[in-house]
Each structure stands twice: as C-alpha cells, then as structure tokens.
C-alpha cells in the first residue's frame, strides 16, 4: 500500500480501497466508477460518473514530472466536453504540498495554480462581456483572451480537490500572455458576474517537465524525452 495513504478508506459502493491522499476531496473508485466524497471524516457516495472517454491523452494517473524544479504527480483527471470536442484537466500535487492543474487540450499543455479571487474580483468583465482577442491585465500580467466557451464535466478518474458533479456546465475563458503565461478564468455555472476563479500558470510541453511514465500507443515507441529519464 502507498505509505502516504491515510487510514484506509473503502469505497462505500464496492468495498475496494479508496486511497485518498493529500488535498483530495473526491475520488473516483477505480473498480466501480463510483464517486466517493470525503468531508472531514465522513465519506459520502455521490454516484457513478459517466464513462470517461478515451481521448488519446499520453498522460496517465501516476505520471510524474518536475515543474520549475518541484516534482509533481498526476493524481486525478476531470474530463470536460464542449460542442466540438473535449479536453482533460489533470489534478496534480506538488512535492511541496501545493496543488495545481495540468490542462491537456488537443496536444497543448499548461500548468496552472488557483489564485485568490481578490486578484480579479470586479476587475475583469463578466463572461458575456468577454470576447476573444480582448487584452486583460490579471495580477500584473497582460494576456489576450484566446478561448471562451461553456464546458460540461463529462467524467473523472482518480482524486479531485472538489466534488465534481457530472453534466454541470461551467463557463470558462482562457488567456495567453506575451511570455507564455496561461490563465484560465472559471466563471462557474452562472456567468453573469465579475468574480471568476483565476487559475494562473504557463504553457508547457511534456518534454520540458519530463513527464513519465506515459501511456503506450500501438505503432509508436516512446524512448524518453531527450536529456530526461525515460519511462520505466
């Protein structure tokens, strides 16, 4: 068993181990797909998430990497869909105890961390007022809106820091900065307010964070990132 696991918690649905770790609040049982939610010492069964779609991501639960020198591990995945596709938000925990998200959309990656809402509250337009190509200054960083769309939680696996209800539609805006910064503003389910949750970070590529192990693909060989340890 994982030495970092807290006292053994079991899936209320099937009895399999539910190895909650760190800041995780919600866990998708890898045996029965039930979502198990931890609130304090209580364990609650939320129900089954809809099946995760295999969207061909090379990232898997347990992939490890290093971002600005701090090791991190992929703990969970939230899959989000919009009208013309879907993307993954991977929940990562860093070795220093902080957490973040590794966004994975059509082969483009970024690592972001949540910031306090006071950074943007009242200083950014509401979701309907936003449009692509608008330039906003968020926490001192100039960035241009590149994406604005409603997305629905489609499925999840592993551990998540909040209780994700499948099907919930949230409104999000992505911005890119002049120096590779990546910012997501999460307006939640009701977009008519100016206090989104800001997630700030930067665009990355998997080689640069040395992510491994990775998924295998028929007909392709992964031989490790150049200058990085390969998968074991």
């Amino acid at each position: 068993m994982d030495p970092y696991a807290q006292p053994q918690i079991q899936c209320p649905q099937c009895g399999a181990p539910a190895p909650f770790r760190g800041a995780a609040v919600s866990l998708v049982c890898e045996f029965c797909d039930s979502t198990v939610v931890r609130t304090g010492v209580d364990i609650k069964l939320v129900g089954k998430v809809s099946a995760l779609v295999d969207n061909g991501s090379p990232i898997i639960l347990g992939s490890r990497g290093r971002h600005h020198g701090t090791p991190f591990e992929v703990m969970g995945r939230l899959q989000v869909s919009y009208s013309r596709g879907n993307w993954n938000e991977w929940y990562v925990e860093f070795a220093d105890g902080t957490v973040g998200w590794l966004a994975d959309a059509q082969g483009q990656y970024s690592i972001v961390r949540v910031k306090d809402q006071s950074v943007v509250a009242g200083r950014v337009p509401t979701y309907p007022e936003l449009d692509v190509n608008m330039v906003l200054t968020i926490d001192g960083i100039e960035a241009v809106v590149v994406d604005r769309r409603g997305g629905a939680y489609k499925g999840a696996e592993g551990q998540l820091p909040f209780e994700a209800e499948p099907g919930m539609i949230f409104h999000g805006v992505d911005l890119r900065g002049w120096n590779g910064e990546f910012i997501s503003l999460d307006y939640g389910t009701n977009p008519n307010h100016a206090s989104p949750v800001p997630y700030m970070g930067e665009a990355i590529d998997l080689a640069e964070v040395g992510l491994h192990p990775l998924r295998q693909f028929e007909g392709w060989r992964f031989t490790g990132w150049q200058g990085q340890p390969g998968p074991t």
Partner: peptide
C-alpha cells in the same frame, strides 16, 4: 480481494 478488476485505467496500450 477487489470486487472486480479495474476496467479502464488507460494502462494498456492504446489501439488503432
């Protein structure tokens, strides 16, 4: 004694 084997962990090679 897991009730059943995990079904979709994306650990198996993806197939064409």
């Amino acid at each position: 004694h897991p009730p059943q084997a995990p079904r979709k962990l994306f650990r198996e090679p993806a197939q064409t």
